[in-house]
């Protein structure tokens, strides 16, 4: 059993507060540089999504490669409510969190009967079906997509046109909230039951807990977080189409970042996003002049190297060098 992380130790707490202070001050340093600001926002967005994925994938041990679905549903909910009903984007955020959470539970009802790879393929198949239906469904804009109506900028409209810094702070607030929630989950009864399901589902069942129920709870939390991230994305780019929010690459990237950061850890998804997003963005900028995709070449090679030399993810590397932490994270054998 993995012990709760010792974030509450004085040194850890100080480090955490320092990190938070740096993150809050960051726009003062890079606010004038749109590329870096956008990248910082994208890192936060992927970190939020990774945290959401991790609730189901890392804690409950149910690996999904269909989580782009809930991100997409959140984004579509936000845009459709604004276009069809002209509602406040903050109601959109609420609806874009609750609806994907509800859909996630619905998807979970049949899929949680499946184990291992059969579950993985089932999540993929559901997400791909919805993707294909959205490409032909006229009411949601089909393959062309829909634009969010542009309104005057301000907090009430959740739109900022000249200076994008508020988006950064909204994403940061969301990440802090989600991470705090996960910290609570990490040491709560629910968190222990979820990890127990991951490690030995039959044992949990024999103790009288319903794995199906607790997996559904994890699925709802996970889907809701992805949905909220989707709403943020829609407000940020003011446009949705099936390829950009429901595409398979989103599902794959979210799972990859979370797994590479470290499955079932609190900081893993943040670390994964903070290292992998800049890596792909910078290598794209530096090498893509040739149009030859050298960034992906390096990326692929690096993933293979991590697989061979650091299979427990970047968090494993971190735990090895971090003097404040106990070495308590075992690599789970699949």
């Amino acid at each position: 059993m993995r012990m709760p992380s010792r974030v509450a130790s004085p040194a850890g707490l100080a480090a955490l507060l320092l990190l938070l202070a740096v993150l809050i001050a960051l726009p003062l340093l890079i606010g004038e540089r749109p590329f870096e600001l956008r990248m910082a926002t994208v890192i936060l967005l992927f970190a939020i999504m990774g945290q959401g994925w991790n609730v189901l994938g890392g804690y409950a041990g149910q690996v999904s490669i269909g989580h782009g679905l809930y991100f997409g549903l959140g984004a579509y909910t936000a845009v459709l409510l604004a276009v069809r009903l002209d509602l406040s984007p903050w109601i959109g955020l609420l609806a874009g969190t609750l609806l994907p959470a509800f859909c996630a539970v619905l998807v979970g009802i049949p899929c949680f009967r499946l184990r291992g790879h059969y579950f993985v393929i089932a999540t993929l198949v559901v997400a791909e079906s919805v993707f294909q239906i959205f490409t032909v469904w006229e009411w949601v804009g089909s393959a062309v997509g829909i634009e969010m109506p542009v309104k005057s900028e301000g907090w009430a409209n959740f739109q900022f046109h000249r200076d994008k810094t508020p988006y950064y702070y909204i994403a940061l607030a969301m990440l802090v909230l989600v991470t705090a929630g996960k910290w609570w989950l990490h040491r709560s009864r629910l968190g222990f039951i979820l990890r127990a399901i991951r490690d030995e589902e039959e044992a949990v069942r024999s103790l009288g807990f319903s794995p199906q129920f607790y997996k559904s709870v994890a699925m709802a939390i996970s889907g809701g977080i992805l949905g909220a991230a989707g709403v943020f994305h829609a407000q940020y780019v003011l446009f949705v189409d099936p390829f950009s929010v429901l595409g398979l690459h989103i599902s794959v990237l979210v799972a990859l970042f979370a797994i590479m950061g470290g499955v079932g850890t609190l900081a893993g998804p943040i670390l994964g996003a903070a290292i992998l997003v800049p890596m792909s963005e910078y290598s794209r900028v530096y090498f893509s002049g040739s149009g030859r995709n050298i960034d992906l070449l390096i990326y692929g090679a690096l993933i293979m190297l991590i697989a061979v030399y650091r299979p427990d993810g970047l968090m494993g590397l971190w735990q090895r060098v971090n003097p404040f932490r106990q070495q308590s994270v075992p690599v789970r054998k699949g």
Partner: peptide, 12 residues
């Protein structure tokens, strides 16, 4: 290795 290292290897 673990299942995830095998996933990484072929995914990479």
């Amino acid at each position: 290795g673990s299942m995830q290292s095998q996933i990484f290897a072929t995914f990479g």
